[in-house]
Design a protein around this nucleic acid. Structure first.
Length: 269
DNA sequence: CGGGGCTCCTGTGCGC
DNA sequence: TGCGCACAGGAGCCCC
C-alpha cells in the first residue's frame, strides 16, 4: 500500500533513473487507468515530451513534462512505477523511453489512476489536502490545534487526507504504537504530552520508512522493481496475535472505520 | 458538516 | 479436492 514514504522512495528513484529521458511512445494496455483526458489524447500529448521533474504531495506523484503538462499518478493500493530494461508483463501502461528502457505502470486491482493535467495544484483532491507532515511549517503546535476541534477517533483521523497528507492505514497504526496511544481515543481528549508524542512519532515513523525505502506489504516495490525493507521493522501492522516487541502481549486487531487496525492493548493507552 | 456505509477491483486464503 | 465467498484497502460518493 503505497503511502507517503513509498511514493517518496519512488520519486527519488525516478529522479535518479529517468529524469531528462524522452517518452518515445506510450502503450496503453488498459485504458481504464487513465482518468483524464481520453486515452488517445493522453498518448498524443505525452509522446515526444521528456521528464523534467518529479514532485510529490501526500501520496500523489506529479511528473512535470517538457510540454508543460503534468502526469499525475496515484498508486492507491497496488500501483507500481517500475523502470527496467524489460516491459513488465502485468503493465497497464508502458512508457517507452529514450535509451531503450521502459517505465511500466502496473496495477493489479485497477484502483490506481493516471491523469494528464495542465495544473496539478488545482486538482480538487490536491487542493483539499491537509499539511505535509514532514514539512517545517507543520509544527507540533499546529498539529495540536487541529486535534483540539476533532471529536473523532484518532486513527481514522490520521488517515484523513484533508487533515494530514500522506498517512495511510499502515503508518497510522505504526505512529500510534510508537506514541503509545490507543487508536480508538478521541482526538480532542489527547493531553499536551500525548499530542507531542504523536507528532514526534509520525515524523520518526515516516522518516525511518523513507530511510528503509518503504514497506513491501501488498504489491509495493520501488522505482526499480525492488522491495523496501521497512516492513521488516513493523511493530503492529499485520501482526495480529503475535507478541508485542515491547511487552510481549498479544497484538490485537479491531475494525475502525471499516479498516483493519492492529495495536498493543498494554502499551497503547 | 460529519460520520457511516457502500463502491470500484482482483488475488488470496479460508471454511465447508 | 474444489468451490464459493469473505476479505484486503484509498478515496469518492450518497444518505441521514
Amino acid at each position: 500500500m503505497p503511502e507517503l514514504p513509498e511514493v517518496e522512495t519512488i520519486r527519488r528513484d525516478l529522479i535518479r533513473d529517468v529524469k531528462g529521458k524522452k517518452v518515445k511512445d506510450v502503450e496503453i494496455l488498459n485504458p481504464r487507468v487513465i482518468k483524464e483526458p481520453s486515452p488517445s489524447e493522453f498518448k498524443r500529448r505525452i509522446k515526444g515530451s521528456s521528464f523534467r521533474d518529479f514532485l510529490r504531495r501526500a501520496k500523489v506523484l506529479a511528473i512535470k513534462l517538457s510540454s508543460g503538462d503534468y502526469l499525475v499518478v496515484h498508486l492507491r493500493m497496488t500501483g507500481q512505477l517500475v523502470y527496467s530494461a524489460k516491459k513488465e508483463e502485468k503493465a497497464r501502461v508502458i512508457f517507452d523511453l529514450s535509451g531503450g528502457k521502459y517505465l511500466s505502470f502496473n496495477d493489479q486491482r485497477l484502483f490506481a489512476e493516471l491523469r494528464l493535467v495542465r495544473d496539478w495544484q488545482k486538482m480538487k483532491f490536491v487542493k483539499g489536502l491537509g499539511p505535509e507532515p514532514l514539512e517545517k511549517s507543520f509544527t507540533a503546535g499546529k498539529f495540536g490545534d487541529i486535534l483540539k476541534n476533532k471529536k473523532t477517533k484518532i486513527k481514522p483521523l490520521l488517515m484523513d487526507q484533508t487533515f494530514i497528507a500522506g498517512i495511510g492505514n499502515l503508518y497510522a497504526q505504526e505512529a500510534l504504537f510508537q506514541a503509545g496511544i490507543s487508536p480508538g481515543r478521541a482526538a480532542n481528549k489527547l493531553n499536551d504530552a500525548e499530542v507531542k508524542k504523536l507528532y514526534t512519532a509520525i515524523q520518526k515513523v515516516l522518516h525511518d520508512a523513507i530511510r528503509y525505502h518503504g514497506s513491501s506489504v501488498d504489491e509495493y516495490v520501488n522505482g526499480r522493481g525492488e522491495k523496501g525493507e521497512y516492513h521488516l521493522r513493523l511493530k503492529v501492522y499485520g501482526r495480529e496475535g503475535k507478541p508485542c516487541s515491547r511487552c510481549k502481549s498479544k497484538i490485537k486487531k479491531v475494525s475502525m472505520g471499516g479498516r483493519g487496525t492492529c495495536f498493543c492493548p498494554k502499551c497503547q493507552k
